[in-house]
């Protein structure tokens, strides 16, 4: 019973992390139709900048968080302007931007290597200490992520469903011409979506920096996890992404318990390919 509860709690932590990792990727995909391979690298940059400001600069964690998110937001807008915008309307735009964002990933990772070096770094935790939930022990930082993730996602949902600008993001994602004819500035919306997606990546990176070592390749695994979640959910809505994050987080926690640490990623990838082949629009997607 206690193992089950502990597994459930660790599944919840994973689900929260995965939902955060995937939300920005999903937002950019649904609005612009670009699969951003630099998403993980943006998380890494967010973590490094936060570390520099809070640890090297000595300004503390919150200014670090703000600096990290601000940097990735600006980088996101720059990536959109230089690497995405020139290819709008091309026949193979989706595939070309896969390659340009892959190049962006390399540029960001190697730059980080040059700037910060390969030595491991870590951010202090937002909250110190551990929390015990009837036997299952997680760090307070992880507990904070579990609480924070739904709040951030709800805020994002409120933004895209209740505010005019947020709604315009969805409108552009569904029908660019019709959106333009309502007076929505489509290029500006693209930049906004990319900036917002990159901001979410930066925020996720800062949160990750408190539980993992920050290295130039910090973003590789989260990028793949975000991809899995977005694909499982179907390249569609935010709700589907959150649902998929829950399914995968829980599945991973319980698979580790039953199959062991080594077979779990293998099983998840096989499941992913099965989903892609049998239901190309995802578990929660609509054809």
């Amino acid at each position: 019973m206690e193992t089950l509860l502990a597994t459930f709690v660790s599944g919840l932590v994973l689900a929260a992390l995965y939902a955060l990792m995937a939300s920005g990727l999903s937002l950019i995909w649904t609005t612009i139709g670009v699969f951003n391979f630099a998403h993980g690298a943006l998380m890494m940059v967010g973590a490094f900048v936060a570390w520099t400001v809070s640890e090297v600069g000595g300004f503390g964690l919150w200014p670090g968080l703000i600096a990290g998110v601000a940097t990735t937001t600006v980088l996101g807008v720059i990536i959109e302007y230089l690497l995405i915008r020139p290819f709008y309307g091309q026949r193979n735009m989706v595939l070309i931007t896969v390659m340009t964002t892959l190049a962006a990933m390399i540029i960001l990772e190697k730059s980080a290597q040059i700037i910060w070096g390969a030595r491991l770094k870590q951010l202090p935790r937002m909250i110190e200490g551990d929390i015990s939930i009837s036997g299952a022990v997680i760090s307070a930082h992880e507990a904070l992520i579990v609480v924070l993730a739904p709040l951030i996602l709800i805020a994002l949902w409120q933004f895209t469903n209740r505010t005019p600008v947020g709604r315009s993001l969805r409108a552009v994602g569904q029908n660019q011409e019709a959106a333009a004819l309502l007076g929505i500035n489509v290029p500006l919306t693209f930049a906004l979506a990319f900036g917002l997606g990159a901001a979410l990546a930066g925020l996720t990176g800062v949160l990750l920096g408190g539980i993992r070592f920050i290295t130039p390749s910090l973003g590789s695994e989260p990028l793949i996890k975000a991809m899995i979640v977005v694909i499982f959910g179907g390249l569609g809505s935010l709700g589907a992404t959150v649902g998929a994050a829950l399914v995968i987080g829980m599945a991973e926690a319980f698979l580790v318990l039953t199959l062991g640490l080594y077979w779990t990623p293998f099983a998840i990838f096989l499941g992913l390919i099965a989903v892609l082949v049998l239901r190309p629009n995802g578990l929660f997607g609509r054809s």
């Binding site: 989706v94 694909i231 390249l235 990838f269 390919i273 892609l276």
Partner: peptide, 13 residues
Amino acid sequence: IYVVLVTFAFSQV
């Protein structure tokens, strides 16, 4: 994009 994703996922498998 699905070709990219499946083949990439396969190399990860």
